[in-house]
């Protein structure tokens, strides 16, 4: 349903042109959860903001193609894009306050959202808001609609935002690190909720996270990003059990185990991700890669069909 092809995003800055996204392509199928994983600054948020048409920076240059159910979104008029948002695609963020106003009650904010897209009265909209809050497991939804955002805990606020995003039954929900700021017990509740949404509403979901554990619990397919490129993509099992890109492997290896023998030392990746202002020629993981060889001075294409890796090492692990 979503087809992104050769997406390139750059920003004109005082230090020259910064290429944040360098030829990213991916698909999301109906009612599928695509996990997007990578370190901070790898371009996860910005690529999906582009899908939402929410990159407002006048210095941004966006190229490539983003098609939602066949319709090209790049170059779409702002008013058209606004109509699409909320009705067909919705996004939730790490900080639920991005989508909420502190001065209105939760119920009113959800009802208003519904009324923007549907011709229904305030009373009916509020009744729908109560149903939605119940659906995201907020206890006593009738009381909750009277509350202001600051009167709710972080977890409850994130649920309210999910309810708001669901209000128009979007076909595609983009969730950008929605549990990163939450405690694990609350995160577990929200992950349950996200899985339920897919089951019940058949929504397609793009789930952005930096946590491989969260990927393991939510995603069907996974795309791994590194410095503005997709370095590997495949099914969850392929990525977690048979990673092919040295970066994916190293990332998985550096996670301390939850059970069994503790390693004396963790495997770490030396150095840190490159600055976008000074990207290495060729493979951008090259300077940190343990398997680097001559060929890596060229830019490796993402190859290999469904389970693809952007790496010149062809041999499987």
């Amino acid at each position: 349903m979503l087809e992104v092809r050769d997406l390139r995003i750059s920003f004109r800055t005082e230090h020259g042109r910064v290429r944040a996204i360098d030829g990213v392509s991916f698909d999301v199928a109906e009612s599928e959860i695509l996990g997007v994983v990578g370190e901070s600054g790898s371009g996860k948020t910005i690529s999906l903001l582009a899908v939402m048409g929410l990159i407002n920076d006048p210095n941004a240059v966006i190229e490539g193609s983003i098609k939602l159910r066949g319709r090209e979104l790049i170059g779409l008029k702002a008013s058209e894009m606004r109509k699409l948002r909320g009705r067909e695609i919705a996004m939730i963020f790490q900080d639920p306050m991005t989508a909420m106003t502190p001065v209105y009650t939760i119920g009113w904010q959800i009802a208003e959202q519904i009324m923007v897209h549907e011709r229904i009265g305030k009373k009916a909209a509020l009744a729908r808001a109560i149903d939605l809050l119940a659906e995201v497991n907020i206890p006593n939804p009738r009381e909750a609609i009277e509350r202001y955002p600051h009167q709710l805990s972080g977890g409850m606020r994130q649920r309210a935002v999910i309810a708001m995003a669901l209000s128009c039954n979007p076909a595609l929900l983009i969730a950008d690190e929605p549990t990163t700021a939450l405690d694990v017990t609350v995160q577990a509740q929200i992950l349950d909720l996200i899985r339920k949404l897919r089951r019940v509403h058949k929504s397609a979901i793009v789930f952005i996270t930096h946590d491989m554990g969260v990927i393991a619990e939510t995603a069907d397919r996974v795309m791994v990003m590194y410095s503005g490129r997709v370095v590997e993509r495949g099914t969850k099992a392929e990525i977690l059990l048979e990673p092919r890109h040295p970066y994916t492997k190293a990332l998985l290896d550096s996670i301390p185990p939850l059970e069994g023998e503790k390693p004396r030392r963790l495997k770490s990746i030396p150095g840190s991700p490159p600055s976008l202002l000074d990207l290495p020629k060729g493979c951008s993981f090259g300077p940190r890669c343990p398997s680097r060889f001559d060929k890596c001075a060229e830019k490796p294409p993402l190859e290999g069909g469904a389970h693809a890796a952007a790496c010149f090492l062809k041999a499987a692990p």
Binding site: D211, E217, L240, L252
Partner: peptide, 15 residues
């Protein structure tokens, strides 16, 4: 027990 059980397990073989 609840806290530890809530930590997402990245190791699919053990999940």
């Amino acid at each position: 027990q609840a806290l530890i059980s809530a930590v997402p397990q990245p190791d699919l073989k053990k999940a």
